[in-house]
């Protein structure tokens, strides 16, 4: 299952937390989301350690980045539910 396709079909969306969220649990979507989020948390931890700031700080900055970079029409969660950008 390709991440871009999942986004364009509205099955997954980016969240202010810096992580992917499941919107529609179609086949394989949950597995994809977990896989991507696991990779992200590793990278966030490395970034936090390298710059000696907290993981939450990195997640907050990442949250803004992923929402900013979301293509128009895809789904985002700013804290109170899924929205179309």
């Amino acid at each position: 299952l390709d991440l871009d396709a999942a986004k364009d079909n509205g099955w997954v969306g980016e969240r202010y937390t810096g992580y992917l969220g499941v919107v529609k649990p179609e086949a394989g979507v949950k597995a994809l989301v977990d896989e991507v989020n696991n990779k992200r948390v590793q990278v966030y931890k490395k970034l936090a350690a390298k710059n000696n700031i907290s993981l939450q700080e990195v997640e907050k900055l990442a949250g803004k980045k992923v929402i900013e970079k979301t293509r128009p029409g895809n789904l985002i969660d700013l804290g109170n539910g899924w929205l179309k950008k």
Partner: peptide
């Protein structure tokens, strides 16, 4: 660089992102 999202959020709430 990074605070812009809060800015547009506080200004027009979610409306801007419809």
């Amino acid at each position: 660089l990074s605070d812009h999202i809060d800015k547009s959020l506080s200004e027009s709430a979610q409306g801007m992102y419809q």
